[in-house]
C-alpha cells in the first residue's frame, strides 16, 4: 500500500474493513505499523491525522470519536503513547478497556521506552525527529512555528536545545541527509541513531500473536 505523507498528515488512513483486530493509531506511525503488520491478515489499521501530534489537546476527543464509530472488530489497540495528553489518553483507554503503547511518546518507544527514560535526564537538550517527522519537517516544525515567515524566532524556540537526534526507523541515506539538513536549519548538532521500530514492533507482534493469526 502506498500512502502519501501529506495525506497521513492531514487526513490519516481509513481502515480497510478486513481483519478482526483494529489498530487505531497516529498517522505518523502508519508506514511503520503497516510494515510490521503486513504479515498478519487479521489486523486492520485506522490512522488519525498525524498533525494531531502538534495538537495534543485534540487527540483524546478524536480517538474517542473514532472508537465510537468502529464496528465489528473483536479488539482495538491504540497505537499512541501518552503523546502530550497528560495521562488523559491512558484514562480513556482504561475507561474503554483497551490497550495502548506505554511511555510518553514515539521518541521513547522507538528507542525502547525504558532505556529512553533512563537517559532522559542526560538528554533533555535533544530535539528528536523520526523518519516521518524528518520527511514532514516543514509541515510539523518549520511552518507551524512560523519559521518560514519569521526565521528570527528560531532561537526563541530552539536556543536551549543542543542537538537534533534523528531516530531512524530505516537506514535511508537520502532521509539521513534530509534530517541532517533539518539540524542545520535549527542550528543544532546532528546525531543519527538507528532505532528500527523498537517497542512498537514488540507491542504489535504481541498483539498479533495474543489475538490469534487468522487462518489463510
Amino acid at each position: 500500500m502506498t500512502v502519501s505523507d501529506d495525506v497521513l498528515t492531514e487526513t490519516g488512513l481509513a481502515p480497510t474493513g478486513a481483519g478482526r483486530i483494529l489498530v487505531l493509531g497516529c498517522g505518523a506511525l502508519a508506514r511503520e505499523i503497516l510494515a510490521i503488520t503486513r504479515q498478519f491478515d487479521h489486523i486492520d489499521l485506522h490512522c488519525l491525522p498525524a498533525i494531531l501530534h502538534n495538537h495534543p489537546d485534540r487527540i483524546v476527543p478524536e480517538v474517542r470519536a473514532a472508537i465510537a464509530k468502529t464496528d465489528g472488530y473483536e479488539r482495538i489497540f491504540l497505537a499512541y503513547a501518552d503523546c502530550g495528553t497528560g495521562g488523559q489518553l491512558q484514562a480513556l483507554a482504561d475507561e474503554m478497556g483497551i490497550d495502548m503503547l506505554p511511555g510518553p511518546h514515539c521518541y521513547a518507544f522507538f528507542e525502547g521506552t525504558q532505556g529512553f527514560l533512563e537517559r532522559a535526564g542526560d538528554e533533555f537538550t535533544a530535539f528528536y525527529l523520526t523518519d516521518f517527522l524528518a520527511r514532514q519537517f516543514d509541515a510539523f516544525v518549520w511552518k507551524p512555528l512560523g519559521l518560514d515567515r519569521h526565521p528570527e524566532l528560531r532561537d526563541s524556540y530552539f536556543g536551549h536545545y543542543e542537538k537534533l537526534v534523528y531516530q531512524a526507523q530505516t537506514n535511508d541515506p537520502n532521509l539521513t541527509a534530509i534530517a541532517e539538513a533539518c539540524a542545520r536549519r535549527l542550528g543544532l548538532v546532528f546525531e543519527h541513531r538507528i532505532t528500527g521500530y523498537g517497542d512498537l514492533e514488540t507491542a504489535l507482534n504481541q498483539l498479533a500473536h495474543t489475538s490469534g493469526q487468522a487462518p489463510p
Binding site: 507551524p144 512555528l145 512560523g146 519559521l147 515567515r149 519569521h150 524566532l153 526563541s156
Partner: peptide
C-alpha cells in the same frame, strides 16, 4: 492567533 504571532507581539 498562534504561538509565532504571540511571540512577535511579546518581543
Amino acid at each position: 492567533l498562534f504561538v509565532p504571532e504571540v511571540l512577535l507581539a511579546a518581543n
